[in-house]
Design a protein around this nucleic acid. Structure first.
Lengths: 262, 262
DNA sequence: CGTTAGTTTGACCTGTATCAAAGCAGGTGG
DNA sequence: CCACCTGCTTTGATACAGGTCAAACTAACG
């Protein structure tokens, strides 16, 4: 039924891969805390999963498919603040404030509240899973900062390259990508809403990447023939390993704000 | 010494105001958990406070002055991912991943690790301070989503209006703004780096707002003569009270991503 | 086959960036 | 007290990235 972005592994294993960032988790590291809800929920493509303002009841794990968190303006403009892939968590503490969550493709989610609830239990301290969980949260925030830079300071090309690399990295971790590429069943409209561009310009940007031999994108399947060059173009910094991000180039943030005058 | 953006209240009271969002905290709600470090730290304008990649040792409260979290690209482009005002927290769990933190003005921070550490202590459950803390984290995330929308989908004018309203709201809460305006000792370069615009364009945008009678900005002091109109222009949604953000206008996120073809 | 959602193309327009230079403090040293 | 820096703001001229509009093309789907 859900045949695209369906991992080869069961949800719990997916969560293990996802949370095991720097140092992999053993499967009992995860299982020890309990299990996921037995009954997964199925979402149709285009279905709304979480509503802005309405505090979600708990945490759910994306088991298959692709979700998006969106903000919409009255006039129809829309911004996707995050794409959620299999292995990602949504709901309390994970979804962005004031955003709706939609299924971009047919999708499947399973409840993870009890499992992640125990994780917060006081009895548990200094546990591999717990620190993995904290690391995952930190990564999530760092990716949001990435997104801010993408929207604020990168050109359309750089943005697209950057996004593709991010998705590749994330899908790779949960076993949904190969070294060369990954499935990406997205409309150009969705890409536009992620990247803060118009549909038409997304189209042209994709074409240019193709012309440059940096991208093959056919029937929802992305191939990146030259990741190094893309990385270079996008100033992409991987998050996989510990992120030793170098600091600012400009030596100081020139200050002296004593008495500006507007 | 630090005379701009210095609250009239001591740091602990500042924290109380800041965390008491929807329902105000009583001062002993906060004090009960301990006190802040006795020894505040002074930062010169332009000084770097936290370095990207280097996990900060704990949490600090901004007691006075203005900080920025930044990401920089090799070629000198820079994006400010967040402005931190008095009352805000920085460090573990609060600062954005992979960002440097700078003092934009002379500033003062005080350690809050022990206080907020006890807050996470298991013994404490269902406490006003704890839920205020959680709400503050949620708001922080929502503001980041705001920022994403600002950069991705708003025009220069809308961005500026939106930012001014946000700052006003935040400063108001900690008692640093009046109903009409607030101090904003920022360079146009900094505004540009927040809004993802060029310095020159920030200047022109400010001028237009002035011409329209929506903004007075002199010697680091902002006045907003017509907040309602600004709110309208920017599609600004306040965060102060519980945020009942209405959902998308477009009824569905048209899907059918079965087999797109790039 | 017609319908519908998505992609592609072309022509054109505009918001914002860039470059360069001039104005304006406030701070410093003579 | 003036003259000069220096950092910031303002202005003008010009270029370009990316938006908008409209229409044609393509491919699924019933």
């Amino acid at each position: 039924m859900i045949n695209v972005l369906r991992p080869d592994a069961p949800p719990l294993e997916l969560l293990r891969r996802r949370l095991g960032g720097a140092r992999p988790l053993r499967s009992d590291d995860v299982a020890r805390f309990g299990s996921l809800d037995p009954e997964p929920e199925i979402h149709l493509a285009g279905e709304q999963i979480l509503v802005a303002g309405q505090e979600p009841s708990g945490v759910r794990l994306v088991a298959a498919g692709l979700l998006a968190e969106t903000r919409a303006l009255n006039d129809g403009r829309r911004q996707i603040t995050a794409l959620r892939l299999p292995g990602d968590l949504i709901g309390a503490g994970w979804s962005h404030g004031g955003c709706d969550t939609w299924a971009l493709t047919a999708a499947q989610t399973v409840g993870a509240t009890p499992l992640l609830g125990t994780l917060m239990d006081p009895v548990v301290r200094f546990d591999p899973l717990r620190s993995a969980w904290a690391a995952a949260r930190r990564e999530d925030e760092a990716r949001m900062a990435d997104h801010l830079v993408r929207l604020g300071r990168l050109s359309a090309h750089e943005r697209m390259a950057h996004l593709l690399l991010e998705l590749h990295e994330r899908l790779l971790r949960v076993g949904l990508a190969s070294a060369q590429g990954f499935p990406l069943p997205l409309t150009q409209e969705v890409l536009a809403d992620v990247l803060g561009l118009s549909i038409v310009h997304v189209n042209r940007t994709l074409q240019q990447l193709r012309r440059e031999g940096l991208l093959v994108y056919r029937s929802g399947q992305v191939t990146l023939p030259d990741r190094d060059r893309l990385t270079d173009i996008a100033s992409y910094v991987a998050h996989a390993d510990p992120p030793p991000r170098r600091s600012s180039t400009r030596p100081t943030l020139h200050a002296a704000f004593a008495q500006p005058h507007g």
